Amino acid sequence: MKNSFNTIIDSNTPVLVDFFAEWCGPCKTLAPILKQVKEALGDDVKIVKIDVDKNQTLASKYNVRGVPTLLLFKNNQQVWRESGVLQKNDIINVINTHK
């Protein structure tokens, strides 16, 4: 997983990583919002979901202590991070800032 994750985030296109858990209520709230973000931005963003229970090493590498946590990467660099449920327009604004 780690090598493929590094390949995914090493992209000129912003990559939004959603650290989530199946049991997390707010994560379920965020899922359709992220789908709307993807529909709005299309190829301008990649969205990747990482289950923290199945990828504890990766979650711990990025100090993810609560879910949902969103991280935005560009060219293998973390450029933004936020925990909790965000609104569609807020997420789109952040991604557009880093395009």
Score class of each variant (00 low, 15 high):
Leu30Trp: 04
Thr29Phe: 00
Pro14Asp: 08
Gln77Glu: 01
Gly84Tyr: 08
Thr57Gly: 04
Lys38Gly: 04
Phe5Ser: 12
Trp23Asp: 05
Lys2Glu: 01
Asp18His: 10
Leu86Arg: 10
Leu86Gly: 07
Gln87Ile: 08
Thr7Ile: 11
Gly42Thr: 02
Val48Thr: 15
Ser60Cys: 05
Leu58Asp: 12
Asp18Ile: 08
Thr7His: 13
Gly84Pro: 12
Ile33Ala: 02
Asp43Ile: 15
Thr13Ser: 05
Trp23Pro: 03
Glu82Trp: 01
Lys99Pro: 00
Leu16Val: 08
Asn76Cys: 06
Gly84Ile: 10
Thr29Gly: 00
Lys88Arg: 14
Ser11His: 04
Lys74His: 04
Lys46Met: 13
Gln78Cys: 02
Val45Arg: 05
Pro14Trp: 06
Cys27His: 03
Val52Arg: 11
Phe73Asn: 09
Val37Thr: 09
Gln77Leu: 01
Asp53Cys: 11
Ile95Asp: 01
Lys46Val: 15
Thr57Leu: 11
Gln36Gly: 00
Lys61Val: 08
Asp44Trp: 01
Ser11Asp: 07
Arg65Asp: 04
Lys35Gly: 06
Ile8Tyr: 06
Lys88His: 11
Thr69Lys: 14
Asn93Met: 15
Val15Tyr: 05
Thr97Val: 06
Lys54Ile: 00
Gln56Cys: 00
Lys49Val: 06
Asn89Cys: 00
Gly25Asp: 09
Pro68Ala: 09
Gln77Met: 01
Ile33Leu: 01
Asn89Ala: 13
Gly25Ile: 14
Gly25Ala: 15
Tyr62His: 09
Asn12Leu: 05
Asp10Cys: 04
Cys24Asn: 12
Phe73Cys: 11
Asp18Pro: 10
Asp53Gly: 03
Thr7Trp: 08
Asp90Trp: 00
Lys74Glu: 02
Pro26Asp: 13
Thr97Asn: 12
Ile95Glu: 01
Gln87Pro: 02
Gly84Ser: 03
Ile91Trp: 03
Gln56Gly: 09
Thr57Pro: 00
Asp10Leu: 08
Val64Ile: 15
Ala59Leu: 14
Val52Asp: 10
Lys61Trp: 02
Ala40Leu: 12
Ile91Gly: 13
Gly42Pro: 00
Asp18Thr: 08
Leu30Val: 05
Lys99Leu: 10
Glu39Val: 09
Lys2His: 03
Trp23Glu: 10
Thr13Glu: 04
Val17Arg: 04
Val45Tyr: 04
Arg65Asn: 11
Leu34Val: 14
Gln87Lys: 15
Arg65Glu: 05
Lys35Arg: 14
Arg81Phe: 01
Trp80Arg: 02
Asp18Ser: 04
Asp51Phe: 03
Met1Cys: 04
Thr29Ala: 03
Asn76Glu: 07
Leu34His: 13
Phe19Ser: 13
Leu71Val: 08
Gly66Ala: 11
Lys49Ser: 14
Gly25Phe: 12
Lys46Asn: 12
His98Glu: 10
Val37Pro: 12
Lys61Leu: 13
Lys99Glu: 07
Thr13Tyr: 02
His98Arg: 06
Ala21Tyr: 09
Gln78Trp: 01
Pro32Cys: 07
Leu58Phe: 03
Thr7Gly: 12
Asp43Ser: 15
Ile92Asn: 14
Asn96Val: 00
Lys74Arg: 05
His98Asn: 13
Val48Trp: 10
Cys24Gln: 08
Ile47Thr: 07
Asn93Thr: 15
Leu30Pro: 11
Asp53Leu: 05
Asn76Trp: 02
